[in-house]
Every structure is written in structure tokens, then in C-alpha cells.
Nucleic acid binder design. Sequence first.
DNA 1: TGCAGGAAACAGACCGTTCGGTATCCTACT
DNA 2: AGTAGGATACCGAACGGTCTGTTTCCTGCA
Lengths: 220, 220
Amino acid sequence: MGKSVSKKQAVAAALSANDEESARGRLLSAATHLFCKNGINATGIDAIIHEAGTAKTTLYKLFGSKTNLVHAVLESEGKAWREWFIGAMEQGGGDAQAKLTRIFPALKSWFGEERFYGCPFINAVAEHDKDAKQFRAIALRHKKVVLSHIEKLAGEMGAADPESLAHQLALLIDGAIVAAMVSRDPAVADTAGLAAGSLFGPSKVKKPKRTAGAAQLVAV
Amino acid sequence: MGKSVSKKQAVAAALSANDEESARGRLLSAATHLFCKNGINATGIDAIIHEAGTAKTTLYKLFGSKTNLVHAVLESEGKAWREWFIGAMEQGGGDAQAKLTRIFPALKSWFGEERFYGCPFINAVAEHDKDAKQFRAIALRHKKVVLSHIEKLAGEMGAADPESLAHQLALLIDGAIVAAMVSRDPAVADTAGLAAGSLFGPSKVKKPKRTAGAAQLVAV
DNA sequence: TGCAGGAAACAGACCGTTCGGTATCCTACT
DNA sequence: AGTAGGATACCGAACGGTCTGTTTCCTGCA
């Protein structure tokens, strides 16, 4: 735990919200689990504090309201997921296409986790008023970060239309996440990966290195 | 249920549960609207009977419980959607590929509707216990019917692997629905259609050359 | 070293509201 | 006369949220 006496605030800042031993960390992780597993509306405050092992007072002192807690959960979970996802693509090096090819194997291992409950952002939108922009805006912000990274890689790869390719891959990602949530079959990631292969596979890049066929220059 | 008396009841019998004039039809359509728009858990009985213009008694006499009402809504809405979707593909004739190509334009017009709230089955799974099979099983049954039809068309088209192609298209469909729900931008259907083109486009059919007719005999 | 003080968290009773669901009575048509 | 449906009061449970009081542990100071 703390390495020094007088640096209390420094330690608190360092551990921030992730410390599993702090009430805040426990509440955040219990809420994340229950919201994702059972849905936000179906999860009561009492269930959260029970799983976190805290008192109701603590929750309301730290977060103020259930709504605030929901937003805190989405923010922290979104950040963690993006870091994991982008890390899974980047880790291991290789060229841009190699990184993009790691998308679906990475998703597959996620789908196989015991606590895989689909995308929290999609699920949050699904169970709230679809005419309200509240959750949709949060979800879009999340997806945009992911999309940007994919688009950057698509550009480096030499795709004829990086933006379009990135959007297509994003659709496959969303589709795979949803299908995996419903079917509980991680193999949907393989299907998505196969489809992705057709997208940035033959005749989809600007400079095919003049290999097997000149005809491939007629992209798109 | 008798068709004895004049037109009114005959019409009621013909429209069965869809008759906007019967209490059952009004309840079903109000529940469908509210469940899809605001989520199932977030929709109270009172809101439903208010929109349907019926009494609470009537709802419980006709459906027994909220749970039963939810199932009735999913069943009727699922059936209606599948009929619309398959109809949109089939209507207009042409070969199998022409029919498959109509998928995303059809979805686009759906996405553009004022009352488009995403897929009720996906949304239902999203807001309930993901370890329970209840809603997931219902959603899978729905998706399987759609998938089968697409797979049949993929076979008629002469795809090298109709089952795989159908699953890939299904992922694009789910992805497009979810993305459209979040972004409210029907144009995601165009992106999905573009991706689909890469899937059953070049070099994805068994016998690309030897024409257009013989290969199709290898159906299913 | 020992103790006062205070923050942080625990425990849980409690409040007003809303929930899903039931019961009672009433109306309007065939 | 019979039946489908409307109106409404009501029930117990659960909800989000507040409140009072207690425990624990760290810190400052003598």
C-alpha cells in the first residue's frame, strides 16, 4: 500500500479510481459488473453496495447519484477497453495490415471471457430512450476513438479509401460483438475476421506491389 | 372469433391481433412502440395502457403479465419484421445475387423511419441478464430464420461457401442495425452494402466464368 | 507514548415514489 | 342477459435517495 506517511494525497492520486481496496474502486468495479451483466435499469443500488461491500452512504458521498455512477462506469470502462483494444492491435509490431488483422483474434479472446457481456455503450443505448442523445453521444465518442485508430492504420496500409474501409471494419466489429453477446459463441469473431480479409484483401490497396496481377490496380 | 356478423368482426378476425381498433391490437402496438423506444425495463404498465387507451384490467385479462406481454410483442414484431425483410429481398425478382443486394437498401429505408429504434431482440438481450438464456434463445430463433433465407440465396448464387457468406452478411446486418441505432445515420447501410459487395463480389463464387446459369443448380 | 480529534467508511432505519399486479364496480353494446 | 372493456382504489415490494449513528484508523500534539 502506501509507501510513505506524508504523501497520502499523492498515493490517493496515483491509485486514483482503480484501487480495488478503496471504496470507490470497489463500487466502480461492482457497478461495472452488474450494469453490464444485468443491465443498468435492472440493477438496484442495493445490489451494487452489496457486491462492493460498502455502505449506501459511501456511494452517494462518492458519486452523488446513480446517474453519475453510470457515467463514471462508462467512462472508466470505455477507457480501459480502448486501451486494451488498441494495445492488442499494436502489440507485436508488424505493418499496418498485420495490426488490423489482429482485431478479430483479439475480440475472440474477449468474447471467450466469462464476464463478456457485450459492449456497454451499445447496451446502454439499447435500454434507454432512443430519442435522447445522452447515451448515444457517449457511445459515439467511444466509437470514434476506435474508428480513428483503425482509419489511421488503414491509411498506413495503403487502402484506396481508408475512411470507408475503417467504417466497414467498424461495422464488422459491432456486428461481431452483438452476435457474440446473443450467441455466446466466440467463433463469430472468426467469421468477422474472414469477412475483414475480403475487405482489405485482394485488390483493395493502392499499391499491390505489382505482384500477381496488374489488373488489381483497378481498385474499388 | 366467429366470422358471423357483418364486416367489422370479419375485419377484426382477418387482422387478428393487429386490429388497431381492438384492445389487444392497441395494447400490442403501444407496448411495441414503448418497449422499443424506451426499453422494456424502463417502460411501466401505466405508460402502455395510457398510450393504448385501455384499462389496466384489460391488459391483465388479455396478457396475464408484463412478461407475457413482452413475449407477445417480440413474437408479433419479429414475425412482422421477418416478413417485411424477406419480402423486401424477394420482391422485384432477379437472381439470387440481385436479391441479396437489396438487403442494405432495404435496411437503409428502415433506418430512416421515424420509429426506428434498433433491433428489439438485440435490445432485449442487452438489457437483461446475459447469463440467462431466455431472451438470447428468442433472439437466436429470430436470427436463424433470417440467416436461413440468406444462406439459401447465397447457395443459389453459387457462393463457394454459402453458410460462411450468410454468416458474414448477418454480421454486417447486425453491425449496421446497431450503428444506425447509435448514430441515427441511415448511411451506415451504404457502408454495409459496400462491404457486402466485397464479400460476394469478385472470386467468391464457385464458377465465376462458366456462366451464369449452370452453377445455380447447385443450390443448398 | 498516549490521547484527542477528525475523516472515511460501515450499518441500517427510513422516506416518498413507482412498480407490477389485483379487486371492485360501472358502462355500452349487441 | 351477457360480455368486453373502462375507471379507479388498492396492495406489497422494490426503487432511488436521505438520515442518524457507530466503527476504524490516521494524524497532531503534549
